[in-house]
Design a protein around this nucleic acid. Sequence first.
DNA 1: AAAAGTTATATAACTGGTTATGCAAAAGTA
DNA 2: TACTTTTGCATAACCAGTTATATAACTTTT
Lengths: 319, 319
Amino acid sequence: MVDIFERTGKIAIGRRLRLLSQQLTDDSSKIYQLYGIEGFLPKWFPVFFILHQDGEQTITRIAEHIGHSQPSVTRSIKEMAKVGLVKDNLKSKDKRKNVVGLTDKGMIISQKILNELSSDANNVVDLMIAQAQHNLWEAIKEWEKLLEQKSLHKRIQEQKKQRESKYIKIVSYQAEYKSAFKSLNEQWVSTYFEMEESDYKYLDHPEKNIIEKGGKILVALYKDQPMGVCALIKTEDPEYDFELIKMAVSPEAQGKNIGYLLGKEIIKVAKELGASKLFLESNRVLKPAVNLYHKLGFTEISTRPSPYKRADIQMELAL
Amino acid sequence: MVDIFERTGKIAIGRRLRLLSQQLTDDSSKIYQLYGIEGFLPKWFPVFFILHQDGEQTITRIAEHIGHSQPSVTRSIKEMAKVGLVKDNLKSKDKRKNVVGLTDKGMIISQKILNELSSDANNVVDLMIAQAQHNLWEAIKEWEKLLEQKSLHKRIQEQKKQRESKYIKIVSYQAEYKSAFKSLNEQWVSTYFEMEESDYKYLDHPEKNIIEKGGKILVALYKDQPMGVCALIKTEDPEYDFELIKMAVSPEAQGKNIGYLLGKEIIKVAKELGASKLFLESNRVLKPAVNLYHKLGFTEISTRPSPYKRADIQMELAL
DNA sequence: AAAAGTTATATAACTGGTTATGCAAAAGTA
DNA sequence: TACTTTTGCATAACCAGTTATATAACTTTT
């Protein structure tokens, strides 16, 4: 039964933790009985503890302290009030607040729990930790910290990108990629805007209008399929050497870092061509694209005339 | 919020584990999305995994494999069937059985999960383990094993006994314990049986009928209160030197090992008095008592005549 | 072959938590 | 002072599991 975890591997670490925690908490009501504490539900412990240590306080306050939701505390308090461990609705100026405190009966039980049960439990756990080679308590603390720094989701996303980057190759334009170069760009342009004359100029005749004019086209292959493209053209503007245009990544291949890899590579190419400053145009609606350009080091500049209607942001990068 | 655990101490290790496991599983639906797996609930994973690995099988079989309850699997299967990942009620001679298998759609998704997601997750967890000083995965395994050997409940019980044994003192009879000697015995005898003449002989005149005849009375004090007694009297029977009588422990002080400590001490005393064989009588209704005698090393013997009506078991111990 | 027992499953109800929502009271602001 | 926003709480509904129980279908015993 346990060896399901050996079979599924560490992806099931969450489940395995839950199972272990369940094993531990399942015993707990029996343990309270051991100490002659009748009618006390183990789940009340955190609420009880905080009331004993910090005294009377409101429900929301308790919830914050113990890291539970407020409705969960409300329910516990109700249950505890029913068996007379706690009294609620204590005097308070603010009528929204429900100030809660231990009753005398609650005090007596809390003495017992904290002096006897709690200290025995502590010793037992310490003993178990000592019997094991790997310290569970410390390991939990470390994991809490690690997850605080970076969520599991984020970590897996990165891992995925890294694995997939092995399937990504950035290559120079060749005739066989002509249709991909057009369709990838057409796809996103027509989703957000309308195709313009300038678009057709480059997409229909890339060799003539880009490469033969001293520009460059890069293609990103994912598992040997063209999934992203971008191009560099010489500008007339004397301030810039090249303009970055026609950056496009297939929606199917999103999240694989293809845009970034293309960008990095095209910047490298520009440097090799002797460029010292790059220019590009985009639209603020395309947030992921603008983010990507920022990530690549581009900075916004005040707008100058553009051949594209859709352009509402211009950026530059000094190499 | 987290430091509630530093305050409550290790008694809350179960809760802390649950919280950590929750943090891990909360992310999981987002993670499935990352891989383009839509409409798959992470809780289905174990069922899915086992169907992929071991092929078609019945619901109960799956439940056993993955260590969940049968109703839980029944529900998962229903949900998965609804979205077409699984087909149930496959042909089977035994009409009670519900044989379940993956559909083609299920197969495709399971490929994706097991080849990509699962391996990325494994790598991420391994990386996190490597970043931590204390290996969480191994620590969990060790705890599972430790708990299998001895439950938390049992461990805490032992710890409690040990702590309390510090408050227990075994002392020789003195006049001040006369009333305790009588009342402790009276209490249990009259609960199960009726007081007999023999009882009054020893309980009303312990000095005269026990001590002055070469016997011995021990009293167990718990926090300086007499909570247990037992006595040794010389027997007429030449085969035995002494008989163990009037063993009684207050119900309030049960579970503190007092009976065992009294027994051990009285045996030691008997040895010092030069005894080589002890005798005692009891009744099978008093299971904890008979257990205690066994634990002390006594063995049953075939019955001989007794002055007590209530005796139906006799035991001896060779020193 | 009938009766009794066992097995496989579905269903219902509970558990210890959660999020979502609505309402009243208090606080802030025009 | 009236209006809007915020706060504190209760309630409802959900979630992923559980145990308990009923029922039908098989198997074993008499």
